[in-house]
Amino acid sequence: MDTTHATDPADSTDPTDTTDPTVRRFDTINLIFNPHSTGNAPDLAAKLRDQLAQDLPYTPDIRMLPTEHAGHAVDLARQAAGTPNALVVSVSGDGGYNEVVNGVMAAGTTDTVCAVLAAGNANDHQRTTARQPLAAAIAEGQMRDMDLLHLTTGDGPDAEAVYAHSYIGFGLTPVVAIDMEKGNKGALKEMISVVRTFAKFRPHRIQHTDGTRAKIDSLLFANIPQMAKYATLSEAEDQPADGKFEVILFPHTAKWKVLLKALRATTTGLGDQPSVARYEFTTLKPLPYQLDGEVRSAPANTRVRVESAPSALTVIG
């Protein structure tokens, strides 16, 4: 839903008016960041804290919450969501925000609002969904709902479930990411790594629910229209709040054709893609996947289910 603050002079809504139910004033604002971030997260968090202390027309408890290890943001966000009327801000890239989102969702039914302040290398979500500078958005207090992707791997008591705010990719995307993580960062080295990985990449086989098997190069589920700064995945305009997600499937083909598709994604875009609320398949061999930038793997012979979680998260920014 679009709750963008009206700027028409005839609009009498005052963003500081506590009688307006669409305006949110928070009791606590939690800034979660990695103190060792390569994206200057500590300084960005401190700058936001100081700006909010100066600009907000009220005085919330602003908490600086540095993470101590991988996955710690999940715990910090879950604890913060246990406090009524809280805002949880992830000062991070897509991976850090993924942890915060999962922490808030793990807290169960709350009135917690989430936000992301871009820091780090991958900021696809903030880049494609932000409507205004975060400090100004918090001051106005205008919220909106956002869909999430809900991924379940396995069945029964051994099933694992996790949320993604932007995308889940199987096949070539996580394989490239794994290889890049092995080396040092840097544009030239990353490009060399991508070329090397692509040259030796082999397709993956999956089985659809109707029993048919398919050989794929890439299978991507997207809640946002763009990723990796330049790639336009679809032309959908209602993302990420339409109760569906886009499915971008690259069946196995010659490598030069895959390169042409990649080039098209970075220039004219891939065009309209199928939009669904649920997609299911079974892995036939271990299958790596990338979830908001974080690389994981699904075991062989595992049922994989991706579902839209409509309006699962309330956000600001």
Rank of each mutant, 00 (worst) to 15 (best):
D2K: 10
D11T: 05
D14H: 09
T16E: 04
I32W: 02
I32D: 00
P35K: 01
P35Y: 04
D43F: 15
D43S: 14
L44V: 11
D55W: 15
P57D: 01
Y58A: 05
D61Y: 14
I62G: 07
H69E: 06
G71H: 09
R78P: 06
A81F: 12
G82S: 08
T83P: 10
V89H: 03
N98D: 11
G103Y: 01
T109D: 15
T112C: 06
L117I: 07
A119G: 11
N121G: 09
H125Q: 10
A130M: 02
A130Q: 04
A130V: 03
R131L: 03
P133T: 01
L134W: 00
A136I: 12
A137G: 09
A137Y: 06
Q142H: 04
L149A: 01
D158R: 10
A159E: 03
A159W: 04
S166D: 00
I168L: 03
G171K: 00
G171L: 00
L172D: 00
V176L: 10
E181N: 14
I192L: 15
I192T: 15
V195A: 14
A199S: 14
A199M: 12
R202Q: 14
P203M: 11
H204M: 07
R205L: 14
H208Y: 13
D210W: 15
G211R: 13
T212D: 10
R213L: 10
A214P: 15
K215W: 13
I216R: 11
L220W: 08
A222V: 03
Q226V: 06
Y230I: 12
L233S: 00
A236E: 07
D238N: 12
Q239E: 02
Q239V: 04
P240I: 00
K244C: 09
E246A: 04
I248L: 09
P251K: 05
T253D: 15
V258N: 06
L260I: 12
A262Q: 08
T267I: 11
L270E: 02
A277H: 09
E280C: 07
L284D: 02
P288S: 04
Y289P: 04
L291V: 01
E294A: 07
P299R: 01
A300E: 07
A300S: 09
V304D: 02
E307R: 12
P310Q: 00
V315R: 08
I316E: 01
I316N: 02
